[in-house]
Design a protein around this nucleic acid. Sequence first.
DNA 1: GTGAAATTGATTCACCATCTCAATACGCTA
DNA 2: TAGCGTATTGAGATGGTGAATCAATTTCAC
Lengths: 143, 143
Amino acid sequence: MHKDHKETLLLRDHLAKHQLKLTRQREHILSVFLKMEHITAEQMYRMLAKKDPHIGLATIYRTLNLFCEAGLAQARHFGTQTQYDNISHKGHHDHLICTDCGKIVEFENCDIERLQEEVARHNGFTIKTHKLELYGLCAACRH
Amino acid sequence: MHKDHKETLLLRDHLAKHQLKLTRQREHILSVFLKMEHITAEQMYRMLAKKDPHIGLATIYRTLNLFCEAGLAQARHFGTQTQYDNISHKGHHDHLICTDCGKIVEFENCDIERLQEEVARHNGFTIKTHKLELYGLCAACRH
DNA sequence: GTGAAATTGATTCACCATCTCAATACGCTA
DNA sequence: TAGCGTATTGAGATGGTGAATCAATTTCAC
């Protein structure tokens, strides 16, 4: 008996509800996507090139947007590119960025997240995701 | 006696320290920028067209990036465009953004800022600035 | 299996931001 | 304030991301 991921079922469900079809390409893209916390279309393209060299970039963009509509992914603009975050990876990371040497430290802080929820509720918003970046000097560059 | 904005002095200081020059274009762009809380290069271009029709888009992009380096502005990618935020509008650094209609609510939360300092100190960083964006649905778009 | 309808992928397109480079403006020095 | 070295400008070219096009192909309900 073959057991599918929760996300696979979610996708099948979305496809069925919208008269969409399950294709070889969509399966391959999903299987790569589920392994990653976040990915860009270009990254996906390079990763797929090994197994299935003929999947076009257009299909990847379309499919990642489909994942967003199906509730599996979330698009986030980071620099000039779009990152597609895997929603099922709940551990969000925020970034400390050194403006001098470019070093990046990832962190997570529950108290901050709780306060964010509070702010959002106070303004009538329901948060889906967030981006927090702290810019400054790391210990090494302060001297 | 002519009294300059704090931001004008900050810009002059940055220019002097980096062997850069104060030009008519930079002055015009600064004067428009200071009136706004945030602006895109395109918006700036249209606003300047009235007074100084021959300022090129390239110059606007270069100058807004210069403002970022001088600590006057902060770039933020929203949708496909880049917003340049006026940092001097203190207490309006952070944003609640509706992913459906694009509505932006600005907020400030001292507790969050204090926790950010704490996280930074814990990692040996000294914060100069930060960027916090919460994405979700506003009250109207939730239904 | 058959056929209507969705999907694919090579390519083109649209858009934003940056780069190029000759012409020009700034500002230091005398 | 004139002269000069250097930064800046602006028009256009360039690059890079993501979306649109459309003929050929694949899926799936029957």
